[in-house]
Structures are given as C-alpha cells and as structure tokens.
C-alpha cells in the first residue's frame, strides 16, 4: 500500500462514548467519532446538545461513563491524574466561560500556558506580542483581564489556548461574542494553525463559520451524532438530510 494514499492517523478517537451526569442526565450517548491528525471539524448543535461535554471529555475535564476516548495516542480514561499534564500540553482549549484570571493582566493570562512548558521568558514575550497583534489586542497587553469586554476576554482565552502551539485545539463557541471583523481574525488564526498541522475541533452555533466550509461538520443532538458532512465537503451537502433531522426533533 502506498503510504501517500494511506489516511492520516487518528488524533481523536471516540468509541461508543456515553456521559451521564448525576442524577440521570444523559449528556452524550454512544458517540463514535474519529478525527484525523491535521483535520478541522466543526461541532454544531443546539444548546444542551452535548458539544461542550464532548470537548470536556476529549480534554479529560470529564471522564466518560462508558466507552473509549483516545487522544493523541493516549487512552484518556486510563490516564492517571499524575500524567494528565501530558495530554493537556497537547490540547489547547478555549473555554466558553473563558477561564481567565480577572486580576491578572492579559499578558499574564496568556503567559500561564507557556510557563507550564518552561518556555524561556524572551520567547513568552515574543509569542504574546505576536498573538495579541493577530487578535487586535496589542493595546491591552497590560490591561487586567477583568477590565476587558466579553469579546476581548474571548480573544484572550483563544490566544492562551493556542499559545504553545498545541497539536489539538478545542474551541468552545470561540466567536460567540465577536463581531464579523474579529471573527474573521480568529478564523484566520485558526486557519494558520491548521496549515501548521494542528487538529481543530470547533464547537459553534455560528452558522457563518461552517456554512460553505471545506471542513467536516458534525451535528449533535440530544447527545448523539445526528449527521456529519463528508470530509472535505460542504455542510450544505447535508441539505438532503434536513427533513430527517426535523423529524427527530421533539
């Protein structure tokens, strides 16, 4: 078999994964999903569909109730608390609630992700400047994160997630508070990371992001994968499935 024709290795592999929150809330049901190395995938669905839970399972913020989660060659379930940093250094996550330290400056908030990998101070400075420039936040370098608007906080959260060039980037509603121009900047940053080989999983409501995208789009509903576009296809290809989706909706 010609290696050039062989499919890229799986970066994220979920097999029959379920997550039940107590007392009995089924967040994810029997989800099986494979995302190849360097692939960009949009995860869409209504609120409560299970997008955030899926991202939390991949980053091991949650453990699945059932099934297998394999990320960057690591069995996430078997990963001990002591070794969890090995996974987290490969996965950068932009959280929906930003998870910023409001009393620290923008630079400090981004630097955290670089300090934990013992990046030299000079490189930290350089990388922060670069990211702030790309996300139009240069003037906010020394501003405390708590003093920023939600849109700015969201961009700082994204900057921190991508700061140490992780292999996998999980973005939970990354453009939820952004205007069109800033959204374009964020997407350009993601595109740049994608070109460098990063695997991206973007959970979003924003139709403009995945409409006409050449990347795979997966729709979740009630914790199940309802549909997915073909790899390297357009989400509009799913158009024919739309009536079926409507039927499933309660």
């Amino acid at each position: 078999m010609n290696p050039e024709n062989s499919p890229p290795p799986a970066m994220i592999d979920l097999i029959k994964v379920s997550k039940v929150y107590p007392p009995n809330v089924q967040a994810i049901s029997d989800v099986s999903l494979t995302i190849a190395k360097g692939e960009v995938v949009f995860l869409i669905g209504m609120s409560g569909a299970g997008k955030t839970t899926l991202l939390r399972l991949i980053s091991r913020m949650e453990k699945p109730t059932k099934g297998m989660v394999d990320v960057a060659g690591m069995d996430v379930i078997k990963l001990s608390e002591r070794d969890i940093h090995l996974l987290r250094r490969k996965v950068g996550m932009a959280h929906q609630d930003f998870k910023l330290l409001p009393e620290r400056t923008v630079a400090d908030n981004i630097a955290i992700a670089l300090e934990v990998v013992y990046c030299p101070q000079s490189l930290i400075e350089k990388r922060i400047q670069e990211l702030l420039e790309q996300l139009d936040l240069t003037k906010k370098y020394n501003t405390r994160a708590g003093e920023l608007s939600r849109g700015e906080q969201q961009r700082v959260s994204i900057a921190r997630a991508v700061a140490n060039n992780p292999e996998i980037i999980l973005a939970d509603e990354p453009t939820g508070n952004l205007d069109a121009e800033t959204t374009a900047r964020v997407m350009a940053l993601f595109e740049q990371l994608h070109r460098r080989g990063a695997t991206l999983l973007i959970a979003t409501h924003d139709r403009a992001l995945f409409h006409d995208t050449p990347h795979r789009v997966i729709e979740l509903r009630f914790g199940r994968i309802l549909s997915q576009s073909k790899t390297e296809g357009s989400y509009d290809d799913l158009g024919e499935l739309a009536p079926a989706l409507e039927e499933i909706e309660p």
Binding site: M61, H85, G92, K99, A113, V116
Partner: peptide, 16 residues
C-alpha cells in the same frame, strides 16, 4: 483556587 484549576487545565504538573 481559580488559578490552580487553570494551571491544571493548561498542563501544569503536580510538582509545578
């Protein structure tokens, strides 16, 4: 507490 949780999320080791 918030900072420690964050450190954990960005890949800090227990020793760190």
């Amino acid at each position: 507490q918030q900072e420690l949780e964050l450190l954990r999320l960005v890949g800090a080791t227990n020793n760190y």
